[in-house]
């Protein structure tokens, strides 16, 4: 499997490199050139500052959005009155692209980082909410009944029965949200920022610095990939019991 995966990757890169020998337009660099520029950028402070600025926006946004999504989603999945008043508003605004709120957030919270973090949090809230909600709702009733029968308190049922059975879906929602947080982070930085990877790619484009454009692209790709892997590793740890039981 690993060989197939690497084989295809190498084949694509080799074709691309060969194609560059035949002459590429100047806005498409060959893989070796990209690697060279990327390694060169790794030696500079500037790249780390942009990475720091970007992560300083996307991670707090992701954390806040996911935490609220989990809390509200589980609550809506468990408490009927809350479900009936809160969920419809969420499901009705679900297909609306949340990024349109960015200009308004910029007016309310300033053009600095706060408005970006909040818009990322808003975008991340939805997938986590929906998944936590369905996760809590799909808890097998028989488990809840057994726990009640054995005299478990409401809190104990929540923490020992509902949360574990909702966890796989919660992670699925967080995985979507994490990818979304990078997209929205990048978008907000391209629209309006003074730092960050989206800003870097924007100035690179305006000044025709194609090397910087690809450096930013490779960096965001690596960050997205690494974040996804970290989350999946966390999932494996948190759901270790699932592998053995299900």
């Amino acid at each position: 499997m690993l060989i197939a995966r690497l084989g295809l990757l190498v084949a694509v890169l080799a074709l691309w490199q060969l194609w560059s020998l035949a002459g590429l337009p100047e806005y498409i660099l060959s893989p070796l050139e990209i690697a060279r520029h990327f390694v060169a950028a790794l030696g500079s402070r500037e790249l780390y500052e942009h990475i720091g600025a970007s992560l300083g926006r996307s991670l707090p946004g992701f954390a806040v959005g996911s935490a609220l999504g989990i809390a509200f989603g589980l609550a809506a999945g468990m408490a009927r009155w809350f479900d009936e008043t809160f969920s419809p508003a969420v499901f009705m605004t679900y297909p609306v692209p949340k990024i349109v709120m960015l200009p308004l957030f910029m007016l309310w919270f300033g053009i600095g980082d706060l408005s970006k973090i909040l818009i990322i949090a808003l975008a991340c809230f939805y997938p986590v909410f929906v998944n936590a909600y369905y996760g809590a709702r799909s808890t097998p009733r028989i488990l809840v009944w057994s726990a009640m029968n054995m005299g478990a308190s409401r809190w104990r049922i929540f923490s020992r029965v509902v949360v574990p059975s909702a966890l796989p879906l919660v992670f699925a929602g967080m995985r979507v949200s994490l990818a979304l947080s990078f997209i929205v982070m990048f978008a907000t930085e391209m629209i309006n920022a003074r730092s960050g990877l989206g800003y870097l790619i924007q100035i690179a484009e305006n000044s025709l610095r194609f090397d910087l454009m690809y450096v930013s692209l490779v960096t965001i790709a690596i960050l997205g990939y690494a974040g996804d892997h970290l989350l999946r590793a966390g999932r494996r740890r948190a759901l270790a019991w699932q592998e053995t039981h299900a």
């Binding site: 692209l217 965001i220 790709a221 990939y225």
Partner: peptide
């Protein structure tokens, strides 16, 4: 699955 988590939006300038 390898490129799933990569924000494709970064390709927009290109």
């Amino acid at each position: 699955s390898g490129t799933y988590a990569v924000p494709k939006l970064a390709l927009f300038p290109i």
